[in-house]
Amino acid sequence: MAIIQVEHLNYQYSNSDTKAIDDVSFEIQAGDWVAIVGHNGSGKSTLAKLLIGLMAADSGKITIDGQELTPDSVWQIREKVGMVFQNPDNQFVGATVADDVAFGMENRGVDRDTMVVKVDRALKQVGMSAYKDREPANLSGGQKQRVALAGIIAIAPKILILDEATSMLDPRGRQEILAVIQQLKTDLNLTVLSITHDIDEAANADRLVVIDDGRFVEEATPDNIFNHGQQLIDMGLDVPLSEKLKDALQKRHVAVPQSYLDERGLIDWLRTSRLNK
Protein backbone atom coordinates (compact mmCIF):
# COMPACT_ATOMS: atom_id res chain seq x y z
CA MET A 1 0.00 0.00 0.00
CA ALA A 2 1.25 3.47 -0.84
CA ILE A 3 1.67 5.50 2.34
CA ILE A 4 2.81 8.61 0.46
CA GLN A 5 1.31 9.61 -2.89
CA VAL A 6 2.46 12.69 -4.74
CA GLU A 7 0.53 13.70 -7.87
CA HIS A 8 1.50 16.49 -10.29
CA LEU A 9 3.03 18.67 -7.59
CA ASN A 10 4.12 22.23 -8.49
CA TYR A 11 5.77 24.94 -6.43
CA GLN A 12 7.45 28.22 -7.30
CA TYR A 13 9.16 30.60 -4.85
CA SER A 14 7.77 34.13 -5.15
CA ASN A 15 11.22 35.62 -5.86
CA SER A 16 12.14 33.09 -8.54
CA ASP A 17 11.48 32.86 -12.30
CA THR A 18 11.46 29.10 -12.42
CA LYS A 19 9.55 26.35 -10.67
CA ALA A 20 11.33 24.76 -7.71
CA ILE A 21 9.07 21.71 -8.08
CA ASP A 22 7.80 21.02 -11.58
CA ASP A 23 5.01 18.47 -12.06
CA VAL A 24 6.47 15.83 -9.73
CA SER A 25 4.60 12.56 -9.17
CA PHE A 26 5.69 9.42 -7.30
CA GLU A 27 4.54 7.10 -4.56
CA ILE A 28 6.17 5.40 -1.61
CA GLN A 29 5.06 2.05 -0.23
CA ALA A 30 4.57 1.59 3.53
CA GLY A 31 7.68 0.15 5.19
CA ASP A 32 10.03 1.17 2.37
CA TRP A 33 13.14 3.32 2.70
CA VAL A 34 13.24 5.73 -0.21
CA ALA A 35 16.06 8.22 -0.73
CA ILE A 36 15.47 11.37 -2.76
CA VAL A 37 18.72 12.40 -4.41
CA GLY A 38 19.69 15.43 -6.47
CA HIS A 39 22.39 18.10 -6.39
CA ASN A 40 22.21 21.22 -4.19
CA GLY A 41 19.39 23.40 -5.48
CA SER A 42 17.62 20.57 -7.32
CA GLY A 43 14.45 20.99 -5.26
CA LYS A 44 14.88 18.09 -2.81
CA SER A 45 14.42 20.16 0.35
CA THR A 46 11.49 22.08 -1.13
CA LEU A 47 9.82 18.75 -1.80
CA ALA A 48 10.32 17.69 1.83
CA LYS A 49 8.81 20.94 3.12
CA LEU A 50 5.78 20.47 0.87
CA LEU A 51 5.33 16.87 2.06
CA ILE A 52 5.10 17.92 5.70
CA GLY A 53 2.94 20.97 4.92
CA LEU A 54 5.52 23.57 5.95
CA MET A 55 4.76 25.22 2.62
CA ALA A 56 1.64 24.79 0.50
CA ALA A 57 2.00 23.57 -3.08
CA ASP A 58 0.74 25.82 -5.92
CA SER A 59 -1.04 22.83 -7.41
CA GLY A 60 -1.08 19.04 -7.22
CA LYS A 61 -2.04 16.59 -4.54
CA ILE A 62 -0.24 14.94 -1.62
CA THR A 63 -1.86 12.00 0.14
CA ILE A 64 -0.30 10.66 3.33
CA ASP A 65 -1.56 7.47 4.95
CA GLY A 66 -4.84 7.72 3.05
CA GLN A 67 -5.46 11.34 3.98
CA GLU A 68 -5.12 14.26 1.59
CA LEU A 69 -2.83 17.05 2.82
CA THR A 70 -4.93 20.22 3.22
CA PRO A 71 -4.79 23.18 5.62
CA ASP A 72 -7.37 21.30 7.74
CA SER A 73 -5.57 17.96 7.82
CA VAL A 74 -2.01 19.22 8.17
CA TRP A 75 -1.90 18.88 11.98
CA GLN A 76 -3.28 15.35 11.93
CA ILE A 77 -0.79 14.41 9.24
CA ARG A 78 2.14 15.85 11.15
CA GLU A 79 1.26 13.49 14.02
CA LYS A 80 2.29 10.70 11.70
CA VAL A 81 5.47 12.25 10.38
CA GLY A 82 8.73 12.97 12.16
CA MET A 83 11.27 15.15 10.46
CA VAL A 84 14.96 15.74 11.14
CA PHE A 85 16.67 18.66 9.38
CA GLN A 86 20.25 19.26 8.36
CA ASN A 87 20.99 21.94 10.92
CA PRO A 88 19.86 20.78 14.36
CA ASP A 89 20.27 24.25 15.90
CA ASN A 90 17.03 25.26 14.22
CA GLN A 91 14.97 22.63 16.03
CA PHE A 92 16.04 22.83 19.69
CA VAL A 93 13.62 24.06 22.34
CA GLY A 94 14.43 22.33 25.64
CA ALA A 95 16.76 23.58 28.39
CA THR A 96 18.33 20.12 28.69
CA VAL A 97 18.77 17.24 26.28
CA ALA A 98 16.08 15.23 28.12
CA ASP A 99 13.61 18.16 28.01
CA ASP A 100 14.22 18.50 24.35
CA VAL A 101 13.54 14.85 23.62
CA ALA A 102 10.35 15.10 25.72
CA PHE A 103 9.03 18.16 23.88
CA GLY A 104 7.24 16.27 21.10
CA MET A 105 5.56 13.99 23.62
CA GLU A 106 4.45 16.94 25.79
CA ASN A 107 2.68 18.33 22.73
CA ARG A 108 0.89 15.04 22.37
CA GLY A 109 -0.21 14.87 26.02
CA VAL A 110 1.85 11.83 27.01
CA ASP A 111 1.85 11.29 30.81
CA ARG A 112 5.02 12.01 32.75
CA ASP A 113 5.96 8.45 33.80
CA THR A 114 5.70 7.15 30.25
CA MET A 115 7.62 10.17 29.04
CA VAL A 116 10.55 9.55 31.41
CA VAL A 117 10.84 5.93 30.25
CA LYS A 118 10.61 6.88 26.57
CA VAL A 119 13.15 9.68 26.85
CA ASP A 120 15.67 7.32 28.45
CA ARG A 121 15.07 4.64 25.84
CA ALA A 122 15.33 7.04 22.92
CA LEU A 123 18.55 8.60 24.22
CA LYS A 124 20.04 5.14 24.71
CA GLN A 125 19.17 4.20 21.13
CA VAL A 126 21.13 7.16 19.76
CA GLY A 127 24.02 6.74 22.23
CA MET A 128 23.41 10.01 24.10
CA SER A 129 22.34 8.79 27.58
CA ALA A 130 25.41 10.36 29.21
CA TYR A 131 24.33 13.79 27.96
CA LYS A 132 20.78 13.67 29.35
CA ASP A 133 21.13 16.69 31.64
CA ARG A 134 23.41 18.77 29.40
CA GLU A 135 22.38 21.91 27.56
CA PRO A 136 21.73 21.14 23.87
CA ALA A 137 23.53 24.36 22.90
CA ASN A 138 26.84 22.99 24.19
CA LEU A 139 26.77 19.81 22.12
CA SER A 140 28.69 19.29 18.90
CA GLY A 141 26.80 19.20 15.58
CA GLY A 142 26.75 15.41 15.42
CA GLN A 143 25.61 15.07 19.02
CA LYS A 144 22.80 17.57 18.44
CA GLN A 145 21.60 15.54 15.49
CA ARG A 146 21.44 12.40 17.59
CA VAL A 147 19.30 14.26 20.15
CA ALA A 148 16.99 15.51 17.40
CA LEU A 149 16.59 11.93 16.21
CA ALA A 150 15.85 10.77 19.75
CA GLY A 151 13.04 13.35 19.94
CA ILE A 152 11.50 11.81 16.83
CA ILE A 153 12.04 8.22 17.96
CA ALA A 154 10.20 9.02 21.22
CA ILE A 155 6.95 9.89 19.40
CA ALA A 156 7.15 6.79 17.16
CA PRO A 157 5.79 8.28 13.93
CA LYS A 158 4.71 6.18 10.93
CA ILE A 159 6.93 8.12 8.56
CA LEU A 160 10.41 9.47 9.19
CA ILE A 161 11.73 12.19 6.89
CA LEU A 162 15.47 12.88 7.04
CA ASP A 163 16.50 16.12 5.33
CA GLU A 164 20.27 15.69 4.97
CA ALA A 165 20.12 14.69 8.60
CA THR A 166 23.41 12.77 8.68
CA SER A 167 25.47 15.27 6.70
CA MET A 168 27.00 16.79 9.83
CA LEU A 169 27.94 13.46 11.43
CA ASP A 170 31.38 11.89 11.20
CA PRO A 171 31.50 8.63 9.20
CA ARG A 172 31.19 6.44 12.26
CA GLY A 173 28.40 8.55 13.74
CA ARG A 174 26.61 8.35 10.41
CA GLN A 175 26.90 4.56 10.28
CA GLU A 176 25.60 4.31 13.85
CA ILE A 177 22.60 6.54 13.16
CA LEU A 178 21.82 4.72 9.92
CA ALA A 179 21.92 1.42 11.83
CA VAL A 180 19.53 2.87 14.44
CA ILE A 181 17.15 3.98 11.71
CA GLN A 182 17.36 0.60 9.97
CA GLN A 183 16.50 -1.10 13.28
CA LEU A 184 13.57 1.27 13.97
CA LYS A 185 12.28 0.77 10.47
CA THR A 186 12.13 -2.99 11.07
CA ASP A 187 10.75 -2.80 14.62
CA LEU A 188 8.04 -0.22 13.92
CA ASN A 189 7.43 -0.86 10.21
CA LEU A 190 8.51 2.73 9.72
CA THR A 191 8.52 4.29 6.26
CA VAL A 192 11.71 6.30 5.76
CA LEU A 193 12.13 9.11 3.27
CA SER A 194 15.67 10.44 3.26
CA ILE A 195 16.87 13.43 1.32
CA THR A 196 20.56 13.00 0.91
CA HIS A 197 23.69 13.22 -1.15
CA ASP A 198 25.53 10.74 1.00
CA ILE A 199 26.21 7.58 -0.94
CA ASP A 200 26.16 5.39 2.20
CA GLU A 201 22.78 6.76 3.21
CA ALA A 202 21.50 6.25 -0.35
CA ALA A 203 22.85 2.67 -0.36
CA ASN A 204 20.69 1.95 2.72
CA ALA A 205 17.53 2.79 0.79
CA ASP A 206 15.32 0.26 -1.00
CA ARG A 207 14.76 2.69 -3.86
CA LEU A 208 16.15 6.02 -5.05
CA VAL A 209 14.16 8.86 -6.58
CA VAL A 210 16.33 11.20 -8.66
CA ILE A 211 15.24 14.88 -8.84
CA ASP A 212 16.86 17.53 -11.06
CA ASP A 213 15.78 21.15 -11.60
CA GLY A 214 12.59 20.39 -9.70
CA ARG A 215 11.67 17.53 -12.03
CA PHE A 216 11.33 13.80 -11.43
CA VAL A 217 14.12 12.09 -13.43
CA GLU A 218 13.98 8.41 -12.51
CA GLU A 219 13.25 5.91 -9.78
CA ALA A 220 15.27 2.71 -9.38
CA THR A 221 17.15 0.52 -6.91
CA PRO A 222 20.50 1.87 -5.61
CA ASP A 223 22.43 -0.71 -7.72
CA ASN A 224 20.74 0.47 -10.90
CA ILE A 225 21.52 4.11 -10.12
CA PHE A 226 25.08 3.54 -8.91
CA ASN A 227 26.28 2.25 -12.30
CA HIS A 228 25.69 5.69 -13.87
CA GLY A 229 29.39 6.56 -13.38
CA GLN A 230 30.30 10.26 -13.64
CA GLN A 231 26.60 11.20 -14.15
CA LEU A 232 26.15 10.48 -10.45
CA ILE A 233 28.02 13.74 -9.70
CA ASP A 234 25.29 15.63 -11.62
CA MET A 235 22.70 13.80 -9.52
CA GLY A 236 24.35 15.15 -6.36
CA LEU A 237 25.87 11.81 -5.43
CA ASP A 238 29.47 10.71 -5.31
CA VAL A 239 30.79 7.93 -7.52
CA PRO A 240 31.11 4.77 -5.38
CA LEU A 241 34.69 3.69 -4.63
CA SER A 242 34.20 0.42 -6.53
CA GLU A 243 33.28 2.35 -9.69
CA LYS A 244 36.24 4.74 -9.26
CA LEU A 245 38.62 1.80 -8.90
CA LYS A 246 37.09 0.02 -11.92
CA ASP A 247 37.65 3.19 -13.90
CA ALA A 248 41.29 3.49 -12.76
CA LEU A 249 41.93 -0.20 -13.57
CA GLN A 250 40.33 0.15 -16.99
CA LYS A 251 42.76 2.99 -17.77
CA ARG A 252 45.52 0.47 -16.98
CA HIS A 253 44.01 -1.95 -19.55
CA VAL A 254 42.37 -4.24 -17.03
CA ALA A 255 39.25 -5.89 -18.51
CA VAL A 256 36.87 -5.13 -15.62
CA PRO A 257 33.23 -6.25 -15.75
CA GLN A 258 30.86 -3.69 -17.29
CA SER A 259 27.97 -4.14 -14.86
CA TYR A 260 27.80 -2.36 -11.48
CA LEU A 261 29.69 -4.08 -8.67
CA ASP A 262 29.66 -2.94 -5.06
CA GLU A 263 32.94 -3.12 -3.09
CA ARG A 264 32.32 -6.71 -2.03
CA GLY A 265 31.58 -7.69 -5.63
CA LEU A 266 34.70 -5.99 -6.99
CA ILE A 267 36.91 -7.58 -4.33
CA ASP A 268 35.51 -11.01 -5.30
CA TRP A 269 36.20 -10.33 -8.98
CA LEU A 270 39.77 -9.18 -8.22
CA ARG A 271 40.38 -12.27 -6.08
CA THR A 272 39.42 -14.62 -8.92
CA SER A 273 41.51 -12.57 -11.37
CA ARG A 274 44.62 -12.60 -9.18
CA LEU A 275 47.82 -13.92 -10.72
CA ASN A 276 48.79 -17.17 -8.98
CA LYS A 277 52.50 -17.35 -8.42
Binding site: Q86, N87, S167, M168, H197, L237
Partner: peptide, 8 residues
Protein backbone atom coordinates in the same frame (compact mmCIF):
# COMPACT_ATOMS: atom_id res chain seq x y z
CA UNK B 1 32.61 21.06 2.94
CA UNK B 2 30.06 19.93 5.55
CA UNK B 3 26.57 19.80 4.11
CA UNK B 4 27.66 20.39 0.51
CA UNK B 5 26.96 17.85 -2.19
CA UNK B 6 29.91 15.88 -3.66
CA UNK B 7 30.41 18.35 -6.50
CA UNK B 8 30.39 21.29 -4.06
Amino acid sequence: TAGLDPRG
